[in-house]
């Protein structure tokens, strides 16, 4: 290759890579742009106050009402059940893996746990609907076929590896000197783990919780399949509810004409969902960065 061709090839590669980077940024910006555009169009017809704080969600009825709280409530209910499963189980398994398990066990168990994260969510959804709900109905006869409890529990299992794996990373990153310091003062393994290592890793651990919550809020398939499609503002986990994500699926799959107010609701709900998960991700990122600074 002559020097000119070489320079030309270099130039082309650099431009091509730059185009790839710009492309992905532009696509993201485009998605946010469409979301914003349709949301603004929606809010021109529905005042933002009655959207955010209204308690009745009936966008397709002739007497349409656009209070998003039942969807937000459904989302929070299912996510809270999921967190109630994932946080204790995930944290305890992280403590076990980081502080108790011998390295051989850790090398085997950690990847196995992470495989759970690779199961397609549609499998979890049918698992919730066709296995967990009937199982729970044998103890809870009043449980509806569609409900918040069963998808919540299954979602908890789904996000458990996220919590345990990231928390384990945070615990593992705590300098050994702190453990030795605790042992040297006559601490038992549990006292060292619970009173020194876990508090020292707390920001990393909370980052994993927040990330898991963000994942739970955005999770779609499990709730679309097993939670039902009845927007209902309730804290009762035994009855059908509808989450924000499940609502978007419902309308997207239906025959709502483009440009109608019903069609625009999915962008407004999508925007709200985006803002919620975005804020959670930022919080998680901030916590993790702070954690790194302490032990850099």
């Amino acid at each position: 290759m002559t020097r000119t061709t070489r320079r030309y090839v270099e130039w082309t590669i650099e431009r091509a890579l730059f185009a790839c980077a710009v492309g992905s940024v532009l696509v993201t910006a485009g998605i946010i742009g469409v979301l914003l555009f349709e949301t603004v169009a929606f809010l021109r017809e529905v005042p933002i106050g009655s959207f955010l704080f209204g308690t009745v969600w009936t966008p397709l009825f002739s007497d349409a009402q656009f209070g998003v709280l039942p969807l937000v409530g459904g989302t929070i209910l299912v996510s809270a059940i999921a967190m109630a499963v994932a946080v204790p189980a995930g944290l305890l398994s992280a403590i076990y893996l980081s502080e108790y398990a011998n390295p051989r066990v850790r090398r085997v168990v950690k990847p196995v746990l992470e495989v759970l994260a690779g199961v397609p969510t549609v499998v979890y959804g049918y698992f919730a609907l066709l296995f967990v709900t009937p199982l729970l109905q044998t103890f809870l006869p009043s449980l509806s076929s569609f409900n918040a409890l069963s998808p919540g529990l299954v979602m908890g299992i789904m996000i458990l590896p996220l919590v345990s794996s990231l928390s384990e990373d945070a615990l593992h990153a705590v300098p050994n000197g702190l453990r030795e310091g605790a042992y040297a003062l006559g601490a038992t393994r549990m006292q060292a783990a619970l009173r020194v290592v876990v508090p020292a890793a707390l920001s990393g651990i909370s980052a994993s919780f927040i990330l898991a919550m963000s994942r739970a809020i955005g999770e779609t398939m499990i709730v679309a399949i097993a939670a039902g499609q009845q927007p209902r503002l309730t804290a009762n986990p035994l009855v059908p509810v509808e989450t924000m994500t499940a609502y978007i699926v419902q309308i997207s799959m239906g025959d709502t004409p483009a440009g109608s107010i019903g069609y625009r609701t999915i962008f407004a709900v999508g925007m709200l969902l985006f803002v919620m998960t975005f804020v959670l991700n930022l919080a998680s990122d901030w916590l993790r960065r702070r954690f790194r600074e302490v032990y850099a």
Binding site: P175, G177, L178, E180, G181, A182, Y183, A184, L185, G186, A187, T188, V196, P199, A200, V294
Partner: peptide, 20 residues
């Protein structure tokens, strides 16, 4: 061992105060 370490204290090369 816990009792032993209570009677035999240790100070390390790299100071290791707990983040408390």
């Amino acid at each position: 061992v816990v009792d032993l370490r209570r009677r035999v204290g240790m100070v390390f090369q790299k100071s290791n105060p707990f983040p408390k």
